[in-house]
Write a protein that binds this DNA or RNA. Structure first.
Length: 583
RNA sequence: GCCCUGGUAGCUCAGUUGGAUAGAGCGACCGCCUCCUAAGCGGUAGGUCACAGGUUCGACUCCUGUUCAGGGCACCA
């Protein structure tokens, strides 16, 4: 598929060359979709920006360009307006033809990346012995969406789940397991509530000095490779993995066990990180700790802020592990780009990490290092989302509640739907609503969690998009028409709502590209919402199966319906969101 | 104190490398179902884009300052 923007770009380049010579040929013609149909379908804003370079009034320049523009069979009308906007009105025959081209493309116009990369996406990263909570939802959902979109563009994407399975708190947990009479034969029966275990252990740690002391010794045993301690540690890890896998499955994300690459994986590589840092003279000793000083980082007393890679007691930290992970991903996994999907609060940590590995020369200049930060989920009081008594909201509880609420909404709106089908639909729609609520907001901002809004059938929500899809399927069902049999080339644009819909469909590929350019999945959400909205307007204005609709018109509209359904399903799919047949 | 993010309609949010009259949804008000799902559509009202300067033919967008909110700032992750 040839997208309209590049067609125009080419024509404008020729026209500008003809009018002003080859030296201006390569300027960006600044082609955009107009925001108001009054100004045509597309507009070129090049004349204003060229005014200074050429030394003439923008309107004169616009005139000169337009005189040299060869847009036969592309534009029905070209006009100059305002200070020098060039407004372009597409020929209907071109719209028809472009719809056909798009419909015949299995990728719906999405072009493969010119230079496919190997990209590591680090996301989700829950902690062993802790239940997943609402904070993990953001990383998991956003990360999964970006993974799918990069894959769709032909990149090789390696998922990495950098789980927290190591560190001082494990001494405490293991010691508590022993105290509470853990029996190895009881494996996989019950830890049940991992969060509870953690809380109880933490409580005992804080209150019981003798226990705290034993816990610290247990850490030494763990790091020293004591077999019994390791066995208990593995038990904790396995139980947690089981829990994570269940949640991932329910969420419908791509993460699998093979994507797990937890902190402990890097333990054997940490000594080498430190010795290599020493060798290149980047490691300094400050207050007994092994640190790296990097330009531009200051502490609260305006003194250089170190990145600590070895504590004064000799233990390593997450910074050490993260450096090891960068090296592993670049050298062993052969990645050319690393993307980290984490909380915005870790921004400084990643800024330092990236600066450190660049400085060390371990990340070459052409390697891309991206932090993809996101804001906090807020409750109705605009404070971080918690339970009424201030506790953490378990992710599984959230999913359960979503499902119940969704089932009740469906029941209210569509009481004829059989119970079983309603339950199935509720599963899909509730997950979709949760994910979409998370993805449709600009990720850098905090967002307010609101059940009513995310489950609403109005507005920029998953149910609204799914409903558009369901309505299209319903048409085919009612008309007893196989979607495979429709004529993709049958489109004949007549009504204005058909034209608006068609032009919106053309923007799909650009919307997908916009997501990866700035790692902003909400741009695809906004597009899909606008598309669904255009579809609904079309649906109201343009009857399809009714008596008196001519065959040509009917076939044309069916083709538009089919393409709309494909784009909605495909687009939601890129976000990791499923559709239902009925709702 | 320094640094990072944010501040757009009553509420929740969009706003592409600077472009024409700043857009949605909710809420409010007014319309539309003998008709493919009204789970929808059309319309009205609602804005000094936090504030003040600056750059520009043109600023919600870029720069500077101020202010408010959230976050980060040495051995937790």
């Amino acid at each position: 598929m040839t997208d309209l923007k590049s067609i125009f770009a080419e024509k404008f380049a020729l026209a500008i060359e003809a009018a002003y010579g080859a030296e201006h040929r390569d300027v960006d013609p600044l082609i955009n979709v107009t925001n108001n149909p009054e100004f045509g379908d597309y507009q070129a804003n090049i004349a204003m920006s060229l005014a200074k370079k050429i030394g003439d009034k923008p309107r004169n320049i616009a005139n000169a360009i337009v005189e040299n523009l060869a847009l036969d069979n592309i534009c029905a009308k070209v006009e100059i307006a305002g200070p020098g906007f060039i407004n372009l009105y597409l020929e209907n025959s071109l719209v028809n033809a472009q719809i056909q081209v798009m419909a015949e493309d299995v990728n719906l116009g999405i072009k493969p990346a010119e230079t496919p990369e190997t990209i590591v996406v680090d996301y989700s990263a829950p902690n062993v012995a802790k239940e997943m909570h609402v904070g993990h939802l953001r990383s998991t959902v956003i990360g999964d969406a970006i993974v799918r979109i990069l894959m769709a563009q032909g990149h090789k994407v390696i998922r990495q789940n950098h789980m927290g399975d190591w560190g001082t708190q494990f001494g405490m947990l293991i010691e508590y397991l022993i105290d509470s009479g853990w029996d190895e034969k009881a494996t996989h029966t019950s830890i049940g509530d991992l969060e509870l275990l953690y809380q109880q252990a933490k409580q005992k740690f804080d209150q019981d000095a003798e226990f705290a002391d034993r816990s610290r010794k247990r850490v030494v045993n763990l790091q020293g490779g004591d077999e019994y301690t390791l066995k208990l540690w593995r038990y904790l890890v396995d139980e947690s993995m089981l829990h994570f896998s269940q949640v991932y499955k329910r969420l419908g994300v791509l993460l699998e066990e093979t994507d797990n690459c937890p902190e402990s994986f890097y333990n054997p590589l940490l000594d080498k990180v430190i010795s290599d840092l020493e060798e290149i003279k980047l490691l300094e000793i400050s207050e007994g700790a092994g640190v790296i000083f990097l330009d531009g980082f200051k502490d609260r007393d305006d003194k250089p802020l170190p990145m600590i890679v070895r504590k004064s007691d000799g233990a390593y930290l997450y910074a050490t592990t993260d450096i090891a992970a960068v090296r592993y991903r670049l050298n062993e996994l052969q990645a050319g780009r690393l993307i980290y999907v984490t909380d915005a609060r870790q921004s400084q940590h990643f800024a330092m990490l990236f600066a450190a590995v660049r400085r060390a020369g371990w990340a070459a200049e052409d390697v891309k290092l991206d932090h993809m930060p996101f804001g906090t989920v807020l409750g109705p009081n605009r404070k971080p989302f918690k339970t009424r008594d201030g506790g953490t909201i378990k992710l599984v509880d959230l999913l359960d509640e979503a499902e119940l609420k969704t089932a009740s909404v469906i029941e209210k709106k569509n009481s004829e739907m059989p119970e079983k089908q309603r339950q199935e639909a509720a599963k899909v729609i509730s997950i979709a609503a949760l994910k979409y609520a998370d993805l449709s907001n600009d990720r850098i901002k905090d967002y307010v969690f609101d059940w009513d809004r995310m489950l609403a059938l109005d507005g920029n929500t998953a149910p609204y998009l799914q409903n558009a899809y369901v309505r299209i399927l319903s048409i085919f069902r009612k008309g007893d028409i196989e979607r495979q049999t429709i004529d993709k080339g049958a489109v004949i644009i007549q009504a204005s709502s058909e034209r608006t819909l068609a032009l919106k469909l053309f923007q799909y590929a650009a919307a997908v590209e916009a997501v990866t350019e700035r790692l902003e999945p909400h741009r695809l959400c906004t597009f899909l919402y606008e598309l669904a909205s255009c579809f609904h307007s079309f649906y109201e204005a343009c009857p399809i199966l009714k008596d008196g609709i001519e065959k040509d018109v009917r076939n044309s509209r069916l083709a538009l319906c089919d393409l709309s359904a494909r784009v909605i399903k495909d687009g939601l799919g890129l976000l990791g969101i499923e559709t239902v047949e009925q709702m």
